[in-house]
């Protein structure tokens, strides 16, 4: 089924949900939602809503093997997509599915290297992510929710880690036409867009200032720390998508900072 966007978008420049190409969905977030955990957050981007809770840093489980005995904290991530999250109720054949385990792996590797884990040797930081409602950009929303929960838990990190998706509408599988140089990138994809269009998830963070020169820079230097793409796109479009995604990340960063500072973003 072709997406309506592909027929109407070139004419109206409005997406299915009425957004323009560079608009984010409504992002709402809260921190400290669950008093039983060290840190917790609730984040919704459009119809995607996620609850995240962090336990720890705490003593790792015994029998964990050599990993807990190292000089760094170990980040554990558990992602659970609720059965009622999608449009149709998902039938699960026991255990976890491919999508949630892939998100969990990405989150784990992102935060394992992002957090200052060396401050908590021999300990475990466990993150539990529950997806209550899934409408695209799951990984990006999970990254943002985890960041908020980790901030709430007071775990030191060099900067906020903010994720966003970007996609490319039009015939993205053919190389770009140099004479007809128009690109249709989209920011923050919803589920129908994500299913139809090539999309990538990018997450950025503030780069740690190294050396004397970086200390007096006005503009904060951004560093891409997560980049995943699960669909095909011609290499010529990648740069634009990446640029749009990074721009979205900095918009989300401002919103998340607003949430943390108490004024709801």
């Amino acid at each position: 089924m072709p997406l309506d966007t592909s027929t109407t978008y070139p004419l109206t420049r409005l997406r299915l949900d009425g957004r323009r190409w560079n608009e984010l969905r409504l992002l709402q977030a809260q921190i400290s939602t669950n008093p039983a955990s060290s840190g917790s957050s609730y984040l919704s981007m459009g119809n995607t809503s996620i609850m995240c809770s962090v336990h720890g840093p705490a003593e790792g489980r015994r029998g964990d093997g050599g990993s807990a005995g190292s000089g760094h904290a170990v980040v554990e991530v558990d992602v659970n997509v609720a059965g009622f999250a999608g449009v149709d109720r998902k039938r699960r054949a026991g255990g976890s599915d491919r999508q949630s385990s892939r998100i969990a792996t990405t989150l784990r590797s992102a935060f394992q290297s992002h957090l200052h884990t060396y401050l908590y040797p021999h300990s475990t930081i466990s993150i539990h992510v529950s997806v209550l409602s899934a409408d695209g950009s799951l990984l990006a929303a999970a990254l943002n929710a985890c960041t908020l929960a980790l901030v709430d838990a007071g775990i030191p990190m060099p900067g906020l880690l903010c994720g966003c998706t970007s996609g490319m509408s039009g015939s993205a599988s053919t190389p770009r036409d140099p004479r007809h140089d128009e690109l249709d990138p989209l920011l923050d994809l919803s589920l129908p867009e994500e299913q139809e269009l090539p999309s990538l998830t990018v997450a950025t963070t503030t780069a740690v200032p190294v050396g004397e020169n970086n200390m007096d820079e006005d503009e904060e230097a951004m560093k891409v720390c997560v980049l995943t793409m699960e669909s095909k796109v011609h290499a010529t479009y990648l740069e634009t998508m990446l640029a749009v995604g990074i721009d979205g990340c900095s918009q989300i960063r401002e919103l998340l900072e607003g949430v943390i500072k108490g004024s709801r973003g």
Binding site: N34, A36, S49, F84
Partner: peptide
Amino acid sequence: LPGTNGSARIGFADGTQAIVGVK
């Protein structure tokens, strides 16, 4: 939860919370 036929959340003061979605 707008995506379900019915849903509810209850949280005890000790922080245990449950969410139920009916489809």
